[in-house]
């Protein structure tokens, strides 16, 4: 039972990281119909930024430096994402397949650029030692860093919820996911919302990169791609364009993966992809997705 609790919370922590990547993917797809294959590159950029800041700029291993590195990596991810939207995707509006293809190319270019700059070996990051403490829940011991991931993802979920529910741009995004042609016909410039969605999606991915560096104890060129594939699975299971659906799916995917990987050695990844196939074949729109119109 103790092991189950430890594994379960680790799984939710991993799900929290998936959520950070998947929330941006889901909104971008829901609003623009772009399957963004470069999202993993945003995450890796954030991860390298966090690594650089905590090992080269302020290598004191304090919680303050770590907190600054989180914000910094979020900004790096956001800037990368906005640049992608402005320089590449913007010019291909209404060419959905080409937009997806350009992000495939960008993902490839980014990974090889990281490879050229930082080498293929993972760079070791040294997060504050406090994060490696454990807390006792019942008889189980759980690493504190798990709770950090869950808290950060929870805050991002809350921020997304408040933004979508109570701001004007959130209203435009929600309406755009529902029916983009209608929003445009009403004279609202959806393109600003596109840029904004890339900004928040990139920010969450960059933030996820910094946390993933802590989770994986380092950052390599393909860190983002490893997360991207499960983030895709999360988005599709949750339903494209639905943030609550993505959050639920992230917890399901993370816990399933960790639990099955422990109890049936190594089969977790296998079960997760089969889960995706089963969900899609029985409920093509995902758990909370709207039926395509």
């Amino acid at each position: 039972m103790e092991i189950f609790i430890t594994l379960f919370i680790t799984g939710v922590g991993l799900g929290a990281l998936y959520f950070l990547v998947a929330s941006g993917l889901s909104l971008i797809y829901g609003l623009m119909g772009v399957l963004n294959f470069a999202h993993g590159a945003f995450l890796t950029a954030g991860a390298y930024a966090a690594w650089y800041f905590t090992t080269e700029v302020r290598a004191d291993g304090s919680l303050t430096s770590y907190a600054i590195s989180l914000v910094l990596s979020g900004l790096v991810g956001a800037i990368f994402a906005v640049a992608t939207e402005q320089l590449l995707i913007k010019h291909l509006y209404d060419r959905h397949i080409d937009q997806a293809l350009v992000t495939v190319g960008l993902g490839l270019v980014a990974v090889s650029a990281y490879l050229g700059w930082f080498g293929s070996d993972p760079l070791i990051a040294l997060p504050p030692t406090q994060l490696y403490d454990v807390v006792q829940i019942g008889d189980a011991f759980v690493g504190i860093d798990r709770f950090l991931y869950i808290t950060v993802a929870g805050l991002v979920l809350l921020a997304n919820f408040l933004m979508l529910r109570y701001t004007r741009i959130g209203l435009v995004i929600r309406a755009g996911v529902e029916n983009r042609a209608m929003v445009t016909a009403l004279g609202i410039d959806v393109r600003k919302a596109f840029t904004f969605v890339f900004f928040i999606g990139g920010f969450a991915a960059g933030l996820g990169g910094a946390l993933a560096t802590t989770y994986a104890s380092g950052v390599g060129p393909t860190l983002g791609d490893a997360f991207l594939i499960y983030a895709f699975i999360t988005v599709v299971i949750g339903g494209m364009g639905s943030i609550p659906g993505t959050a639920i799916a992230a917890v399901i995917v993370g816990t399933t993966q960790v639990l099955v990987n422990y109890y049936v050695q190594g089969l977790g990844d296998f079960v997760v992809v089969l889960l995706l196939a089963v969900v899609l074949l029985t409920r093509p729109q995902g758990l909370l997705g709207k039926v395509a119109h």
């Binding site: 960008l106 490839l108 270019v109 650029a113 050229g116």
Partner: peptide, 12 residues
Amino acid sequence: GPMSEPAFILGV
């Protein structure tokens, strides 16, 4: 550095 990776040039 990136130029020495074939995938970089192919991607561009």
